[in-house]
Design a binder for these strands. Structure first.
Lengths: 334, 334
DNA sequence: GTGAAAGCGCTAACAC
DNA sequence: GTGTTAGCGCTTTCAC
């Protein structure tokens, strides 16, 4: 790989001039041409590592998500990546598995790699952002929050829980259960509080055992749904606080020979890749979360901070909406 | 961030000794202790950027995939990441969108970032790996191949296509169509050649218009299936050469009021997140591709090359298998 | 076993 | 507008 010195020698200018050309600083037309020609002839690419060492910062942002196999997070990642790319940044995707130890390790890597900033969906409230923040690296929390004072982009989770539950009530269901995520994560707690609020207000009664905590994955939703069906007075509908648990619940229902037309299912989140009959799909309430936009917004905020924006901490709250499934063959807009 | 010099000063040794301690070179017990204490007190973390500039190489590998929202690739990425992590490497995930321009850009980034190696699923045959290879960076092609001489890990695609089609023939279907991916990608061509071979051999006859090329996404499969159903003599079964197009096909069938029990569907690839009734699921033939293992194998090969392995180029071919769906609630093993 | 010193390739003062 | 030069923090000869 050619260096700035070789280009300079070939072009008959100083290394500094070559650097200036590649950084868009003022250089005479004439020398600019000489430099570009020489660079092209040597297939010169600036060495990012040297530049980073010198500048103490890079054009890489770290994105820490709990589960790369959850379509919600891949859509979010997509949003981050698209926005980052527009500004010439690259994204390193890190999968934390909701494991605080992995999360911490990635934060250390982000620091020692001089990454420009971090977007993360914290695995737990205890995540220690102190080290990275004190390094002056901007951090944005996305989807989930953290007690640490950083910018955040989130969903109005309470409203989402309310919307999901209300839709079931209005469809005539009266014994509405809730499959919530692990206790201790504000995002899922807000969603199930929305459920509880509606259940209490509408007098549908919150039966004993109608609240289930599960992991956020398909198997968690599946097991929880089976348990609900095994109750003495099983529910006639269920709200899940994320997308994958809804899949698990639907699987358990299918195994029990129950179609979604007979049993109310509402998910906070969008079901990925549904292949059910249109009527069945239509009967599943989906509170669509703007995952991609969430990522794009987080990236935008982070990039602003990286650029030196010093306004007070912000939390952007996005509103989810209950909506019909998108037409097949249509890509959901941004 | 503390530097090696500050640690050295505090420990009363030379910077070189600090470096040696952190690289596991021979240093006396005594000084080792001093250095570690000083490092701990200063919360010292070695600066990876400086190290990389000096060593001309990093512990980062680039993974270029066509579609991060396709569960096949996220599973593959998962395999790469797990294996990389075991060796202390990080993975940068890059989404090429099957766009040669994006792919090229990422390859340039990989080079200028001194990444240790590249694993990629080429967007096209024309991808130019010359630059990165001539830099001495190892490259492994995964899932898809490239004319360029690099290591590769792939599926026996012809066999997969044969298996999918044979299963439909044995189930009694006689008018079997094929929804293939874009022309010009060897992976999908091999799969549809498997289909054609069986169709010809079994005398099921390859009707005019039974072969459809589509993009690899859900909408592509959906449109292709609709077109097939609109034929004068529509097929009674279909083989799709990837997972997402199968989803699209199933959606189109569902819209037409046709259940998978009535119309044969075979997919090369695994349907993600199925929520259909067990009987319907069972009637869909899925040729399961070991996505995660594909990724893990590619990562292993790459890491061997990075470590200096100079054996001749290898291509590992993995065999897919037709199998029943995994039990719900079970995570597919590695 | 340990220290001194020379870079890795780039950027940013600082002179001119 | 352009060249000279001093590092960024680390690894690695080369002496000792």
């Amino acid at each position: 790989m050619a260096t700035i010195y070789e280009v300079a020698a070939l072009a008959g200018v100083s290394p500094a001039t070559v650097s200036r050309v590649f950084n868009g600083l003022t250089v005479s037309e004439e020398k600019q041409r000489l430099v570009r020609d020489a660079a092209a002839r040597l297939a010169f690419t600036p060495n990012k590592t040297a530049r980073r060492l010198r500048k103490q910062s890079s054009e890489i942002i770290a994105l820490l998500i709990p589960d790369i196999e959850n379509p919600f997070y891949t859509a979010l990642a997509r949003g981050v990546e698209d926005r980052a790319q527009e500004s010439g940044f690259s994204v390193v995707l890190c999968n934390t598995d909701d494991n605080p130890a992995k999360e911490l390790r990635y934060l250390q890597i982000a620091a020692s790699e001089q990454m420009a900033g971090v977007i993360l969906s914290p695995a737990s409230d205890e995540v220690d952002l102190g080290a990275i923040v004190s390094l002056g690296r901007p951090v944005v929390a996305v989807d989930r929050t953290t007690p640490y004072p950083v910018d955040a982009v989130k969903i109005d989770n309470r409203a989402a829980g309310i919307a999901a539950t209300t839709a079931l009530v209005e469809a005539g269901y009266r014994r509405i259960a809730c499959i919530a995520g692990p206790a201790g994560i504000e995002m899922t707690e807000d969603r199930f509080l929305g459920w509880r609020q509606v259940a209490a207000a509408r007098g549908t009664g919150v039966h004993e055992g109608y609240l289930r905590h599960a992991n956020f994955r398909v198997d968690g939703g599946h097991a929880a749904m089976r348990a609900l069906l095994a109750l003495d007075t099983p529910p006639d509908a269920v709200v899940t606080t994320n997308n994958l648990m809804a899949i698990g619940a639907l699987q358990a229902l299918a195994e029990a020979g129950i179609s979604p037309e007979q049993f109310g299912v509402a998910a906070v989140g969008e079901l990925p890749f549904v292949t059910m009959a249109p009527a069945a799909v239509a009967s599943v309430v989906q509170v669509r979360l703007p995952a991609r936009y969430l990522g794009r917004t987080a990236a935008t905020m982070l990039l602003e901070r990286i650029a030196g924006d010093t306004q007070p901490l912000r939390t952007v709250v996005l509103r989810a909406e209950v909506s019909p499934p998108p037409l097949p063959g249509k890509d959901p807009a941004l």
